[in-house]
Design a protein around this nucleic acid. Structure first.
Lengths: 168, 168
DNA sequence: CCAATTAGACAACCTTGTTGTCCATCAACA
DNA sequence: TGTTGATGGACAACAAGGTTGTCTAATTGG
């Protein structure tokens, strides 16, 4: 009686659960990336969205961004470089601190953020229609309980968790 | 009554849902990788586990492995190379087909698989204890409905989905 | 028997991370 | 004021895990 439902033909292994979660994420992320591309914003990945969001939320220099994203400042700087190249953020010298380059999300960047958000919300609604709003809400509640609010890194699943540049 | 629970301070955005799913996966995967390392199997990532499982399940050459993992045969070959180097799989000439190198999971490889499975199952049990077995089962059922049984790729979330080597 | 397909090797490259080093600037304190 | 330490950023080198493209050898099918 280790499992009262052993008659149902469904996955009960921990590994399958993990794959299911990953599959869920990828479904959403891939669909969103594709849709964003269709709307004219090529090659915007979750990482970019996430980074812009952090910048908009106050991480206005590369080092700070790295800290928020739990990533080295060098990695953050690289991401910033591509965002800048695409015109999604600007970098200008900080008049108050000669070391800093102040980051700001451009109107174009904000537009991308807005559309990304809308697309994710549409996808979520689709899911609501498929399993019902209550079921989805419950799922979210439980996941929140399980995952907690630890910061989530967006990079490749399976990288070793290491100490980062200048740890807190 | 668009949402009967609007008083609860929880996420209702599609992006948060995605992050929650990713967070769930990473929680499990990171914990499993760490625990596996603690048990003496350093640096075994989900990709390796997944690949070994496919090999054990019959993908006994690199090209076939690539197909099963939805990855180019070259990428599969690289993975095989590290598995071989670690003594988790062997590669020997196929006597029936001079082109093929037949892959086989070694006893050590099987041991890693076994332990990995056990660890994931333990993690799942932990989750069961935190939200209850029924809740977790429901969550799995719903997720299965939503993501279906499409093959899930384990690589970095956010890579563009492209046509692969020698498409089906 | 020849043409097409397939397995694998090899090389070059991309992306997104990581270190490590180095310099300029700021902040703090004797 | 001046030295010392911390911080921001740039640059280079490298790793992991993907991708393509090209090439050879072996097998398979007409």
């Amino acid at each position: 009686m280790s499992n009262g439902r052993s008659l149902l033909p469904m996955s009960r292994s921990g590994a399958d659960l993990a794959l299911l979660l990953l599959g869920g994420f990828r479904s959403l992320a891939d669909a969103a990336t594709a849709e964003l591309a269709r709307r004219g914003h090529e090659d915007v990945r979750p990482v970019h969205d996430f980074a812009m969001r952090a910048i908009a939320a106050g991480a206005d220099n590369a080092s700070e961004l790295g800290r928020r994203l739990s990533v080295s400042k060098q990695a953050a700087a690289k991401t910033v470089a591509v965002l800048q190249e695409r015109g999604h953020v600007t970098r200008e010298a900080d008049p108050l601190d000669g070391r800093r380059k102040r980051l700001r999300v451009t109107p174009l960047g904000h537009e991308v953020l807005r559309q990304g958000e809308a697309i994710f919300d549409e996808l979520r609604e689709e899911w609501e229609q498929r399993i019902g709003p209550e079921a989805l809400a419950t799922l979210e509640t439980h996941l929140t309980t399980l995952v907690g609010s630890r910061p989530v890194r967006l990079d490749a699943p399976g990288l070793p968790l290491r100490d980062l540049d200048e740890p807190l």
